[in-house]
C-alpha cells in the first residue's frame, strides 16, 4: 500500500502542529519518522490513522483520497501499535486477540491467533490477563494485535520502548522477518536510532511540524558530517532553524 501526503496541515486553535507536510511512502517500504518530542509526529500519525481531521491537505492511499474511501475499508487494511495505547487490561491475551480479530473481520481467526501466538512467543501467557503482563510482554501483545489483520500498512510508534535489549532485539528481528515475508508498508516512529537504522529504508526528520530533512540513514549521516544517526538527530534537533 502506497501512502502519499500532500500539503498536510493541522492547527489546534492557534498552534500549528503540522505545517504543510509533503511526502510519499512507497509500497512495501519501511520509513522512519524521527523528531524531538512535540514536533508533530503523533499528530501526523493520528491524521493518517483517521483519528484527527486535518485542517487542510490530503492523504492519498494508492492514489485515492482517504476522504473518498469508505472509512472502514481503509481501516481494515491498516493497523497500529504503540506502548502508549493499551489493550483492555482485564481481558486475557487470547480474549483481546479474539475481540480484535473479530473487529477486523479476520477469517479463520482461531488459526490466525495460534500462528501469531506462536510467532511472537506469547504461548506462556496467552491465558493471562493483559494487565498482569510485564511491559515487554504487553508490547509483544500490542504488536500481535497490530498484525492480527495482516495489515497492508503498519504504523509502529516506539515498538521497543521500555523493552530490555534481549526482548527489544527479538521484536526488531520479528518485524524484519515479518516484513521480508509479507507485503507491508511500515511507518516507524522511534527514538531508538539503532532500531531506525536497522529497520528502515529511508528516514524523515521532523521538527516544529515540518519535515526538515529526509533520506537513507547513511546519506543523512554523511550530509550532516556526523558519525552516526544519533549525532545526526541531535544536530538537526538542536539547530536553531
Amino acid at each position: 500500500m502506497k501512502l502519499e501526503v500532500k500539503n498536510l496541515f493541522k492547527e489546534f486553535e492557534k498552534f500549528v502542529a503540522v505545517d504543510n507536510l509533503n511526502f510519499v511512502i512507497p509500497n512495501n517500504t519501511t520509513i522512519g519518522l524521527l523528531g524531538p518530542n512535540g514536533c508533530g509526529k503523533t499528530t501526523t500519525i493520528g491524521m493518517m490513522l483517521g483519528l484527527i481531521k486535518p485542517t487542510r491537505g490530503k492523504i492519498l492511499v494508492d492514489e485515492q483520497n482517504i476522504d473518498s474511501i469508505e472509512r472502514t475499508e481503509y481501516l481494515s487494511k491498516i493497523n497500529f501499535a504503540s506502548p502508549y495505547v493499551e489493550l483492555p487490561k482485564k481481558l486475557t491475551v487470547k480474549q483481546n486477540l479474539d475481540v480484535y480479530g473479530r473487529l477486523y473481520g479476520v477469517k479463520d481467526l482461531e488459526n490466525r491467533i495460534k500462528d501469531i501466538v506462536h510467532d511472537l512467543s506469547l504461548s506462556k501467557f496467552v491465558n493471562k490477563k493483559t494487565g498482569e503482563l510485564s511491559s515487554g510482554q504487553k508490547n509483544r501483545v500490542s504488536l500481535a494485535k497490530s498484525l492480527i489483520n495482516k495489515p497492508k500498512f503498519l504504523f509502529l510508534d516506539e515498538p521497543t520502548a521500555s523493552l530490555d535489549p534481549d526482548i527489544g532485539d527479538f521484536v526488531r528481528q520479528y518485524i524484519e522477518n515479518y516484513k521480508n515475508q509479507n507485503e507491508v508498508t511500515i511507518l516507524l516512529a522511534s527514538h531508538n536510532m539503532d532500531e531506525v537504522e536497522r529497520l528502515t529504508d529511508s528516514i524523515m526528520m521532523m521538527k516544529k511540524g515540518k519535515i526538515v530533512d529526509s533520506g537513507t540513514s547513511q546519506t543523512l549521516i554523511e550530509k550532516h558530517g556526523r558519525n552516526n544517526l544519533e549525532e545526526t538527530f541531535l544536530k538537526i534537533a538542536r539547530s536553531v532553524k
Binding site: L49, G50, L51, R71, T72, E73, Y74, L75, S76, I78, N79, F80, S82, Y84, V85, E86, L87, P88, K89, K90, Y100, L103, Y104, G105, K145
Partner: peptide, 18 residues
C-alpha cells in the same frame, strides 16, 4: 468509560468499525 480507563480508545477508533 472502561475504554477510557483501559487506554484502549485509540485501538477502538482505528478498528474498522462504523
Amino acid at each position: 468509560l472502561e475504554e477510557i480507563w483501559s487506554r484502549n480508545f485509540t485501538n477502538l477508533f482505528i478498528a474498522p468499525l462504523k
